[in-house]
């Protein structure tokens, strides 16, 4: 579904990703871990299309399409959604406008008509309930004045409504207390589906207790230096990253 080949990315002339390879198949859940500064957030940002990142080599394809050639909104419409580490506050834009506009953009892409208002409200209410969010939230501005936990729940709510083919979650667990982490994880787990892939970028093994991945990758100094199954996370938890880095250097 997602194929990253020999990806090289620079930020202000400094090379951050140095030939990264990653293959995500439909239905798989992947976790990308690694020390600070390894390039985890750069990878998410480049896949989503954020400005300020220069791709100097390699490719990213999503269902065979060249992602780097797609507009930001076209990536989302095609089913590639990024959950932000730091969701942006957008004063004056109501959540309900964002959700409706985003869903209709996707439907238009699929050749479907705009969703009818009652059907939309039913869908939104159901997902709100699942994420333990109050319906007054719909008429609040996007993330404005939200706590860290509320912002992350909002990211997952958007995922539940937009049903991406691939959800890329950038440090979705950062800043969450255990209760919020449980709600967020339940939301993500409900997205698990044979046709859908999930990629989690995280700093902490704790998240993987709640969302159990099929594959774990260690990203260090701009490359994936080790991959394994979920047992790798436990080993990293116990032994840290240094042994992997040393092993890779040999």
């Amino acid at each position: 579904m997602l194929e990253v080949k020999d990806l090289r990315v620079s930020v202000e002339d400094k090379e951050i990703l140095k030939g990264l390879n990653l293959t995500i198949n439909p239905g798989e859940v992947h976790a990308i871990m690694g020390p600070n500064g390894a390039g985890k957030s750069t990878l998410s940002a480049v896949i989503a299309g954020r400005d300020g990142y220069e791709v100097t080599g390699g490719s990213i394809t999503f269902e065979g399409e060249d992602v780097l050639d797609m507009e930001i909104e076209d990536r989302a419409r095609a089913g590639l959604l990024l959950g932000f580490q730091y969701p942006v506050e957008i004063p004056g834009v109501k959540n309900v406008y964002l959700l409706k506009a985003a869903l209709n953009a996707k439907r238009e892409h699929l050749g479907l008509p705009e969703i009818e208002a009652p059907e939309f409200m039913k869908l939104v209410r159901e997902k709100l309930q699942f994420m333990k969010m109050d319906s007054s939230f719909l008429h609040r501005s996007v993330n404005e004045g939200f706590s860290g936990g509320e912002k992350k729940r909002n990211e997952i709510l958007q995922m539940l409504i937009l049903e991406p083919k691939l959800a890329l979650l950038d440090e979705i667990d950062s800043g969450l207390d255990i209760d919020a982490l449980k709600v967020v994880s339940e939301g993500v787990n409900s997205l698990r589906d044979a046709g859908r892939s999930i990629v989690m970028v995280t700093h902490y093994q704790r998240l993987l207790d709640y969302i159990v991945p099929d594959h774990i990758h260690v990203l260090s100094d701009g490359k994936i230096i080790k991959s394994g199954d979920k047992s790798l996370a436990l080993e990293l938890e116990k032994r840290g990253y240094d042994w992997v880095i040393e092993e890779a250097a040999q």
Partner: peptide, 18 residues
């Protein structure tokens, strides 16, 4: 904010409009 809206699939003009 513009990037955040577009990253949900909103076209650039609509994002600017909102």
């Amino acid at each position: 904010a513009l990037f955040a809206l577009r990253s949900r699939g909103l076209g650039e003009e609509m994002a600017r409009g909102l």
